[in-house]
Amino acid sequence: MDGATKQANRTMTQMLQQCVGPKQKDWVTKLLAIEFAMNSARSSTTRFTLFYLNYGHNPSPMIWKGKELYPGVCQFTENMKDAIISMHDAIIVARVQHTVQANRK
């Protein structure tokens, strides 16, 4: 496993420990909510949520706000292009920072 996967597994384990009842028999029912929470969290490296990078928008909030317009196809593709370019730039910046830190040692 790579470091990101290990961290995601560690985070999921910690979240399960906080949610599961004392008899530890209800953990399966908590997985969907934990997955939703993890996919809704903004990455410090890419500055995007996994939902946004996969679908081009974040999920609707759990509170009903009435009618909302959905972006058109052109707007969707433009948003996705901008997100991928920003994510690419953020990853390069993070790699440079990690290389600088590693070379200091």
Results as ranks from 00 to 15, higher is better:
Met1Val: 11
Asp2Glu: 06
Asp2Met: 06
Ala4Gln: 10
Thr5Leu: 14
Gln7Met: 11
Ala8Trp: 02
Ala8Met: 10
Ala8Ser: 09
Ala8Lys: 03
Asn9Tyr: 05
Arg10Leu: 11
Met12Glu: 14
Thr13Trp: 07
Gln14Gly: 10
Gln14Phe: 07
Met15Cys: 06
Leu16Phe: 00
Gln17Val: 06
Gln18Met: 11
Gln18Ser: 12
Gln18Glu: 09
Val20Thr: 08
Gly21Lys: 02
Pro22Ile: 10
Pro22Gly: 06
Pro22Phe: 09
Lys25Trp: 04
Lys25Arg: 13
Lys25Pro: 03
Asp26Trp: 00
Asp26Arg: 03
Trp27Ile: 00
Trp27Lys: 03
Val28Thr: 09
Thr29Gly: 14
Thr29Tyr: 05
Thr29Asn: 12
Lys30Thr: 03
Leu32Met: 13
Leu32Ala: 11
Leu32Gly: 08
Glu35Ala: 15
Glu35Gln: 14
Glu35Thr: 11
Phe36Thr: 12
Met38Gly: 03
Asn39Leu: 02
Asn39Tyr: 04
Asn39His: 04
Asn39Phe: 00
Ser40Met: 04
Ser40His: 04
Ser44Arg: 08
Thr45Cys: 09
Thr45Asp: 01
Thr46Glu: 00
Thr46Ile: 02
Phe48His: 12
Phe48Met: 04
Leu50Val: 10
Phe51Asp: 06
Phe51Ile: 02
Tyr52Asn: 05
Tyr52Ile: 00
Tyr52Gly: 00
Tyr52Ser: 06
Leu53Pro: 00
Asn54Cys: 13
Gly56Tyr: 01
His57Ile: 05
His57Cys: 12
Asn58Ala: 06
Pro59Val: 01
Ser60Glu: 10
Pro61Thr: 13
Pro61Glu: 10
Pro61Arg: 15
Glu68His: 02
Glu68Thr: 11
Leu69Trp: 04
Tyr70Ala: 14
Tyr70Lys: 14
Tyr70Asp: 06
Pro71Cys: 13
Pro71Ser: 11
Pro71Thr: 07
Gly72Thr: 15
Gly72Tyr: 02
Gly72Lys: 05
Val73Cys: 12
Val73His: 12
Cys74Val: 12
Phe76Leu: 15
Phe76Tyr: 10
Asn79Ser: 07
Met80Val: 15
Met80Gly: 03
Lys81Val: 08
Lys81Phe: 11
Ile84Ser: 04
Ile84Val: 11
Ile85Tyr: 06
Ile85Thr: 08
Ser86Asp: 13
Ser86Pro: 01
Met87Asp: 04
Asp89Val: 05
Asp89Gln: 13
Ala90Trp: 02
Ile91Val: 15
Ile91Ser: 07
Ile91Pro: 01
Ile92Met: 08
Ile92His: 08
Ile92Trp: 05
Val93Gln: 13
Ala94Lys: 11
Ala94Asn: 14
Arg95His: 09
Arg95Phe: 06
Val96Glu: 12
Val96Ile: 15
Gln97Val: 05
Gln97Arg: 15
Thr99Ile: 08
Thr99Leu: 14
Val100Met: 11
Val100Arg: 14
Ala102Thr: 07
Arg104Tyr: 12
Arg104Glu: 14
